[in-house]
Amino acid sequence: MMGPAASSRLAPWLFLSPFLVIFVVFTLYPLARSVVLATHQTFGPEHEQYVGARNFAAMIADPLFWTALRNTFVFALASVFIQLPISLGLALLIERRGTPARPLWRILLFSPALVGVVFAAMIFGIILEKRTGLLNVMLHNLTAGAWNLDFAWTQQYVMSALIVASHWMFVGFNMIYFVAALQNVRRDLAEAAVIDGAGSIDRFRHVTLPAIRPVAGFVVLTSIIGSFQLFELPYLMLNQTAGPDNRGLTIVMYLYQVGFEVGDLGYASAIGWGLAVVLVVCTVVQRLLARREEAAV
């Protein structure tokens, strides 16, 4: 028998043991391994050859990598500057005084967040298609046949099609965070502002915005991180290709193609590190901006 002292010394380690084992085996080891892999060229999982920093040099010179980075960046910009304002606007509409049936609106607009990206890609792949597409048929009817567009398969519309589909999925999801944040707005301050004759724009700037700022920072950061990991949506909407002129190629799609279609896990790992660097830079920039704003308030 163990004494109580020994058992309570051991207990936390026992409780944490699943995490520790999984962390070491499936996070720490692969992480270290990806550093090694990034300096190798591989042919399938078993054959590899040391190439030093050549993978990274190849990546810098690889026009497809830059195309993927640019596409992903455009998508992230749209998420932050189009999608989040819509999410915030809807949250404000729901939470404003006098809106009936608040819980109903919340859950209705949130519901697409429950749909997996794969399934949403299946739906929008066909909705945005030329012959059958819901959107195209509507445009066709409205313009009496003058417009007949193949959204997902025309170069200049590929990114817009992806953005439309992602908005359907995530506008309501991010809205829920803003709805939660708006519960922090102090009623007494809002009412005092009304009595002082503040207009709705002033009230938003001086009462609402400071209260939701921490959550807004969190949502911006998760949107950027999520956007940079975009894969399933373009991969399936574009029928397992990168679309015309690689307009739908994203970083993770390129990583997948290189690692699992070509079979070079080494170059795929180098791309993975490229992604990690981009994400770290985004996180640091967002933190710095948030801190400067907090200092300014």
Binding site: F23, V25, F26, T27, Y29, P30, L31, R33, S34, L37, P45, E46, I225, F228, Q229, F231, I251, V252, L255, Y256, G259, F260, L265, G266, A268, S269, G272, W273, L275, A276, L279, T283
Partner: peptide
């Protein structure tokens, strides 16, 4: 671990499972 982007572990994870 929460900061590690999942796609980074895709290639080495695949090799490990193999």
């Amino acid at each position: 671990a929460m900061l590690v982007p999942a796609p980074l572990l895709l290639a080495p994870g695949y090799q490990l499972l193999h």
